[in-house]
Design a binder for these strands. Sequence first.
DNA 1: CTTTGATATTTAACATGTTAAATAGTTTTG
DNA 2: CAAAACTATTTAACATGTTAAATATCAAAG
Lengths: 142, 142
Amino acid sequence: MLQSTRRSLPMSLLRAREVVMAQFRPILAQHGVSEQQWRVIRVLGEQSPLDATELAERASILAPSLTRIIKALEERKLITRGKVEGDGRRVILSIAPKGQVLISQVSPESSAIYDEVQRRIGHERYEQLLDLLEGLIDLEKK
Amino acid sequence: MLQSTRRSLPMSLLRAREVVMAQFRPILAQHGVSEQQWRVIRVLGEQSPLDATELAERASILAPSLTRIIKALEERKLITRGKVEGDGRRVILSIAPKGQVLISQVSPESSAIYDEVQRRIGHERYEQLLDLLEGLIDLEKK
DNA sequence: CTTTGATATTTAACATGTTAAATAGTTTTG
DNA sequence: CAAAACTATTTAACATGTTAAATATCAAAG
């Protein structure tokens, strides 16, 4: 029997994400970074340096997109790019000072929005949702 | 304090969706339709005709993307496009016979995958997840 | 040591996402 | 009724998603 488009898991995931991101986009736009660029910067803010493959994995961005994003962020001196000695194929990325400044500017506003969303749906439901999503994500690895 | 990228709501929603869609993409690819094209076809399969605005809303596709998708689907005769009498601005879309055939071909395979995902994470958790997502989506309307 | 196979990144090509602006038609106002 | 305001769709421009293929380098076999 046909799945209704209203209670379809992929569709619900997409819409839920849309609702949350709609809160963020204006902030990111004010700082001149896209959603994906911000993900890259934030991952490098947590751990730096990282090679491109690891970075792509952690930021959930496909390699071809990452190539383009890296180029843009490097030109703006938000990140730096280097080569690994011992393996000439790998590219190593690091957060740059300007990138750290950006993180320190955006993070407070970002946290405020997270808190607001969490408050509106309830702390318990929020954690529950994250747990269920994690369970779904882990299906991939089995 | 900084949100970890691992337990970030937008990131988790994105990854969870990715896991589910990874199951679907091969099927859709076999039938030569993209994920978004399939959403449009499926929505029209549920209700047809629909005007472009309604269709965009229900398929969670932005108007500019819908314009391009409609063009492609109409050329392949999967949907048909008409004008409304009384309002010359509106475009009306309907599912075409070829589109209905496609739905009848893809739906069984699609359902099988839904069932499999549901089985793997558990029926109860599956419904719970949909409920929580719905709650998040409804924040938008308040 | 060189050929074969695997891995990391990039390029290419096309579809979609995203915001802003343009177009065309409709409704509201004065 | 004519100007102004509004609505629906399209176009434009650029970023990203997606798959496949190309490059470059490294590792394994022979």
